[in-house]
Amino acid sequence: MSGLARRFVAFFDTTEKPTTMALIRVLMPLILLTDLGHVWMLGLHDVMWFPSEDGGWSVTANHVDDQPLWASIFGPESGTMLFWVTVLLCLTTSTGTFSRTSALLLVLCYAQLEDFLPVSDRAIDRLYRNLLLVLACSGAGKAWSVDAWLAGNLRGVGVTIGGWARRLFILQIVWMYFDAGIEKTAHSWGLMGHYDALWIILQDPVMTRVDFTGLGAWFLWVTRIGTAGTVWWEMLFPLMLVALFAETGRLGPLGERLRRVHFREVFLAIGVFFHLCLWATLELGIFPPAMLVLYPCFFAPEEVERAAHWFSGRSKANTAPASG
């Protein structure tokens, strides 16, 4: 085996505690659940994936060439059943009940929802399916799950899982942001177009939460800073890999400096701010929270546990009765 192949094998041959992946396993399906819950609250679950010939919105449910596999097995009017099965799988995946099977079936049902109504399937849905497939194989159900509870080890004490899953999560997210940055090829995303992209997007009445028209020059400058910040932050996101390598302590003085300035945390904090701004200004559905719940993958299980202890310590301190 060549040196490169050996390094590749070694890169994906690490082990770690299941804490980080378990946290992501709990959160990802909950985001999907809120998304499907919103559909249900609007009373759309029984029309959205129902054949258009029978009063629903799906033009593929009965389509000869594009009929979803689910529809060909269970009938074109079974889209509502698919909705409920997907809801159930979100619950079982989040609770870690038959973790691997649930996550795998969730991906397949989620893909079938797409086949029933392709237009409603967005980039975040595809990203989630990519990552849920990894999650299904990751052993994320070995802690904080019904499976772990039944095995008598709810906290997953002493259990390890492959570190490769979290590494694939990181690679996927890094690529997603980087690609989103380099695909912003319209001039309004660049200096030649005066970084006007966000201002233009915020004038689109279909996309914005509130009316941003008629705001003065200050708003244009705020959006220009936002545009430049967004596109550069996305294109520079691969630096996160350098930051993570620095965390291993194997990057010498540069790594030490990056650690000292909390480069990784600052870079992610910018991402949190970016997604919160998107959430506040644009109607993007689950996209901002769905991205934010993936951020724990940039932290080792020990760091997640430390953060959890810190939060639980603070909440205990806040709820403790005052003495004296």
Partner: peptide, 17 residues
């Protein structure tokens, strides 16, 4: 599996929405 890549998010903001 409904998986894939390609992340053109707001690549071309529409100046005539």
């Amino acid at each position: 599996t409904g998986t894939g890549q390609g992340w053109g998010l707001f690549a071309f903001p529409d100046q005539r929405p």
